[in-house]
Structure formats: structure tokens, C-alpha cells
Simulated assay, not measured.
Amino acid sequence: MPLTAPIRTHRKPRRNAPRTVLRAGVAGGVLSTIAVAGAAGTANAEPVTETIEMPTLSADLSTTVAQSAQATQQIALTMQTRAQLQTQEDTAVKNAATAAKKAKSKAEAEAKAKAEAKKKAEEAARAKAAAAARASRSSVRTELASSSTSTPSTTSSSTATGSAAAIVSYVEARIGDAYVMGSTGPNAFDCSGLVQAAYRTVGVDLPRVSQDQSTSGTQVSLSNVQPGDILYWGSAGSAYHVAIYVGDGKFVGAQNPSDGVVEHDLSYDQPTGAVRVL
């Protein structure tokens, strides 16, 4: 007897269902029945039928698969959002660093400009002071030129009296002593040291340096100097040399290391001005 096998079949679903459902199996329950009938060698053999049940994709499994797909999509979206935020943060940090660098460069440029402006202002001030000093020296020279025709007081040491005579006698007695920078006697002097020592003999304590001694009394004109007055060279307050006027158009001073304490006529080295202390 010929072998026959009745087979129940189902058509495959169309591809309009979600891919995740297709991968899980055919939607709905599928029952396939395979009947196999054969002859066992006799005409009286009965047909044998065998049924195979295929797994069924339940609604819960479909829902789970769909939820898993949605979760995967949500994770991907979250990762994309984080990537965008990180990019924005990196950009913000980069922009902040660039802005800070520009601000620093600007601050350094402003500081440099201020320093240069300050330096220029200081240089201008020094130039102005130098110009004023030159003008002052020029004025002094003009005054000296006009007073050079005047005859200084010819009062001699013999006519000086009191403290002035004592000061004149002291410096004249020191003629021939050595000039030593910083010395105030008794046998060596520098210019201001000699003047200070002379005035100390009459109880007057003068400042130590010539700059201060040139402003220690009343300024007098060179045409009106008297014995005992202090003569100075340079501007009052910034004099670089001092000596004592002794009368008869002469002065005594600690001149330099070569000459020591000497007496000279005023014409030897015209002083700038004079100060009267007594």
C-alpha cells in the first residue's frame, strides 16, 4: 500500500510585524500535524498519525520583547544626550580657557603700558628737574657775573671781633694741614670738617656736610660778606664745597688732597654764595 503523509501547513506572516516578534517565532499558535501511513506488509495495517506541537509565542513574551527594544532605544538616547552634554561642557571649558588667556594677556599689556607710562613720566620729571637746575645755575652765573664788578668787603681779620675773629684765627692757624676726606681735625680736614671745627671753637655746632652748611644761616650777597661767613660753591642746599671768608677778599679752606688747607683770593675760584651764621 503506498506511503502517504497528510501535512497541515500555515502560510508565513507578512513582514509588517515588528522584527523582534518575527525573530521570536510565528505569531499565534502553530499546530502541525504530520500523518504518516504506511503498510506494515499486510493489507490490514491501520494508518498511524503523529502530532508535533510547535511552541507558541505568548502575548507576555511579545510585550517583554517590545519593552526590551524600547529600553534599548532609551539607553541609546541617554548615551547620545550625555555625549552632547560632554561636548558642550568641553566647548565651555575651552572657551573659558581662551577667555582667561585673553584676559591675562590684556592685563599684562595694560600693566606694561602703565609701567612704560610711569617710566616716561619719571624721565620727564628728571628732565624737568635737570632743566630747572641748569636754569638755576645759569641764573647764579649771571648773578656772579654782575657781582664780579663789585668789590667784596675788605674787612681784614684784624678788624674782626668776637666769635668771627676766633673763627678766622682758627682756620688761618690750620693753613698747611692735610686734606683727608671725612676728617674733622685736629691736624687733617675735609672742607666741611674744617668749617665745622672752626665754628665749634665758638660753641656753634654746624651740620657735618657742605650741603647742609650752605643753608645753616642767613644768605648774604658776595658783595656784603664779612670775616667768619661761610662761602659755598654750588647751589644752596646742594653745595659741593665750603670755606671761611677771612677778609681782604680772601678765604681759607681745605681745598683738596694736593693743596690741603690753603688761603686763596676770591678770584681764584669764585664762590656761588655766602651764609652768615653769627
Rank of each mutant, 00 (worst) to 15 (best):
M1I: 15
M1N: 14
I7Y: 09
T9A: 12
H10F: 08
H10S: 12
K12H: 08
P13A: 10
R14W: 12
N16C: 07
P18E: 14
L22R: 11
G28P: 12
S32A: 13
I34C: 14
I34D: 06
V36Q: 10
A39F: 05
A40N: 11
N44M: 08
E46V: 13
E50S: 10
I52Y: 06
M54Y: 10
L57R: 07
L57K: 06
L57N: 04
D60S: 12
T63S: 14
T63E: 13
A66V: 09
S68W: 11
S68N: 12
A71N: 08
T72K: 08
Q74D: 09
I75Y: 05
I75D: 04
A76E: 09
A76C: 04
T78R: 06
T78M: 05
Q84N: 12
Q86I: 09
Q86V: 07
Q88V: 07
T91R: 11
A92W: 07
A92H: 08
V93P: 02
K94M: 10
N95D: 14
A97Y: 10
T98D: 13
A99F: 05
A99N: 11
A99P: 03
A100I: 08
A103K: 11
A103N: 12
S105G: 07
S105K: 14
A107H: 09
A109V: 07
E110V: 15
E110S: 13
E110K: 15
K112N: 12
A113E: 13
E116V: 13
K118S: 14
E122T: 14
E122L: 15
E123F: 11
E123V: 15
A125S: 14
R126T: 14
A127W: 09
A132F: 08
S138W: 07
V140Y: 02
R141L: 09
E143D: 06
S146N: 10
P152I: 04
S153P: 02
S153E: 03
S153W: 03
T154F: 06
T154N: 13
T155A: 13
S156Q: 05
S156T: 14
S156G: 15
T161M: 03
T161R: 03
S163G: 06
S163H: 04
A165R: 00
A166W: 00
I167Y: 00
I167S: 00
V168R: 00
V168K: 00
V168P: 00
S169M: 04
E172T: 08
R174V: 01
G176N: 05
Y179C: 02
V180R: 02
G185K: 06
P186S: 14
A188L: 06
D190R: 02
D190N: 08
C191Q: 02
C191I: 08
S192K: 02
G193D: 01
L194W: 02
L194H: 02
Q196M: 15
V204T: 01
L206G: 00
L206C: 03
L206N: 01
R208Q: 13
D212W: 03
T215Q: 05
T215Y: 02
S221E: 06
S223T: 04
S223V: 02
S223M: 05
P227H: 01
G237E: 11
S238F: 05
S238I: 03
Y240Q: 05
A243S: 15
I244E: 00
Y245D: 00
V246N: 01
G247V: 01
G247Q: 00
D248L: 03
G249C: 07
K250I: 08
A254P: 01
Q255C: 04
Q255M: 10
S258F: 13
H264A: 05
D265L: 12
Q270Y: 15
T272V: 09
V275R: 01
V277K: 00
L278R: 01
